[in-house]
Amino acid sequence: MEVIDEKNIILKRELNELDLFVLKFVKIIERYTPYVIISGYVSLLFGRSRGTEDVDLFIPIIDKIKFNQIYSELKLAGFWAINADDEEELYSMLKEGLAIRFAEKNKVIPNMEVKFTKDIIDYLTLEEKISVRTKQGELFISNIAFQIAYKRFILLSQKDIEDALFLQKMFDITEEKINKYKRILKEHGRT
């Protein structure tokens, strides 16, 4: 792994089936909207040795026409939405702040859990995204220190605490940096 700067990483790892699934999905999404991958997959991408069934992703609020274009293209590429087939219903769910999940047709695992950004914290996550260039394409993930703070102070499960530890050790992130994001989370009512 080569950390070019705070916003760019080159990862020369061999890709696994989950990585290929994610790359296939984001190659479609990125043609229409910015996105950011958050939570567990961020630590898996850099080597955390645990499994997962879903990959969380934020996109900004988009209009229905654009959503329908994305959905059509995803279906053409062999994805289906697990929650519903109807595009109106799926779009309504997103607008209500719910997640919708996409998997390969007739499967449910693995799946991409997509949400609209809903507040300043989600917006900031998207704005501060990092580019990770892999052997088969680019992925945008959340800022590492932000991710650690979120896992350590908001999510709090054993799995999340361990993900946070992994990322902190992996990237040698200082407590000062993590606390900066803890303060931001607190200022915006997340802790």
Binding site: L11, S49, G51
Partner: peptide
């Protein structure tokens, strides 16, 4: 270790 090396081990688990 190199990215190639550790990822081979991790990929066994994930795949």
């Amino acid at each position: 270790h190199s990215d190639e090396e550790w990822s081979k081990q991790q990929n066994i688990l994930i795949n």
